[in-house]
Computed example of a mutant assay.
Amino acid sequence: MQDKVVFVSVSGGKDSTLCLALALEKYRGTGTPVVALFCDTGWEHELTYRYIETLEEFFSIKIHKLVGIPLPELIKKKKIFPSPRRRFCTRSCKTVPTYKFYESIYFSFPFKVAEVWQGIRRDESISRRRTEEYTLQPFQKTRYGESFPFALSYRYPILNLTEKEVFKELEKRGIPINPLYQQGFKRVGCYPCFLSKKDIIQVIQRALEGDRFASKRLGEMQLLDNSVQGRLHIDYSLKELIEKAKKKHELSKRMLTLPFVEV
């Protein structure tokens, strides 16, 4: 039986990418397998899918792609949009497929400990400031009620890094970043995240500017909005978000046409 397997959840974002790099640096050549996995929510940007392939080539590894219920189908099934109190998207699209993957690996390649590396940083939010590493012993239940015949040891190797430091570490290693960052996006998981007003508005703005993929995604949001009760975002309807995006779009156009004045 293998003593330990290291699982790294890769989202296509900067934090999880650095986690993968650090895990490979620590364990490559030691006999401890590092297994990278990407949870496909069915709601990612096409550039993120390409970026995952770029990482496979850069690190010379296979990133296992896990697919649960695609997010649009899940929303239609639930007949409601995700919210801070109803984060069924994370549970169904990421947690459940991930746990199933751990079990499938175990039953074909038994191990004692699953070391789970995640790109969580304390400066991301108030709730994450209290994050600490922990271990669940074999058959000890997770917060969702599952238990496994192996220990789950959660590790957060970049917990105390800032966003700027993460980008610096990636640059130092010559690791490419997701092109969405270069387009001004602060986060790249799910396109857009239904919990983020800013993300939704940014996608709508890009659609107004003629971006092909953003226009497609806006159309998909409109179809979902027409088929599901309740607001697309907890505080705003899609119509209100579109109006906000239009105002931002018009403001940016006016700023571009202002004359240059030498001082």
Rank of each mutant, 00 (worst) to 15 (best):
D3S: 13
V6W: 10
F7M: 06
V8R: 06
S9W: 08
V10Y: 11
S11A: 02
S11E: 05
G12S: 06
G12C: 03
K14I: 00
K14V: 02
D15Q: 00
S16Y: 01
L18K: 05
C19M: 02
A21H: 03
E25K: 02
R28T: 14
R28L: 05
R28A: 08
G31K: 01
T32H: 08
P33W: 09
L37T: 07
F38R: 04
F38L: 04
D40A: 03
T41K: 04
G42H: 03
G42Y: 09
H45E: 00
Y51M: 05
I52E: 01
I52C: 07
L55W: 00
E56W: 03
E57W: 03
F59V: 02
I61M: 02
I61E: 08
I61N: 00
K62R: 13
K65L: 03
L66D: 00
K77P: 06
K77W: 07
I80C: 06
F81W: 04
R85A: 10
R86F: 10
F88V: 01
F88N: 02
P97V: 00
F101P: 00
F101N: 00
Y102K: 04
E103C: 02
E103H: 05
S104Y: 10
F111L: 03
V113Q: 09
V116G: 05
D123I: 14
I126G: 10
I126A: 14
S127V: 04
R129Q: 14
R129T: 04
E133N: 06
Y134A: 11
P138K: 01
F139S: 07
T142V: 07
R143Q: 13
R143I: 12
Y144H: 14
S147K: 07
P149Y: 08
P149G: 03
L152E: 00
S153A: 08
Y154P: 00
R155P: 02
L159D: 05
N160H: 07
T162V: 06
K164T: 12
K164P: 08
E171F: 07
R173F: 06
N178H: 04
K186L: 10
F194Q: 03
D199R: 09
V203L: 09
V203H: 11
V203R: 09
Q205G: 12
R206L: 14
R206Q: 13
L208H: 12
L208T: 05
E209F: 11
E209A: 13
D211W: 09
R212D: 15
A214K: 12
S215G: 11
S215H: 09
S215V: 07
K216T: 13
S227I: 06
G230N: 13
I234T: 15
L238T: 15
E240V: 13
E240G: 11
L241S: 11
E243K: 15
A245Q: 13
K246N: 14
H249Y: 15
H249F: 15
E250F: 13
E250I: 15
L251D: 14
S252D: 15
M255D: 14
T257Q: 12
L258W: 15
F260R: 13
V261H: 10
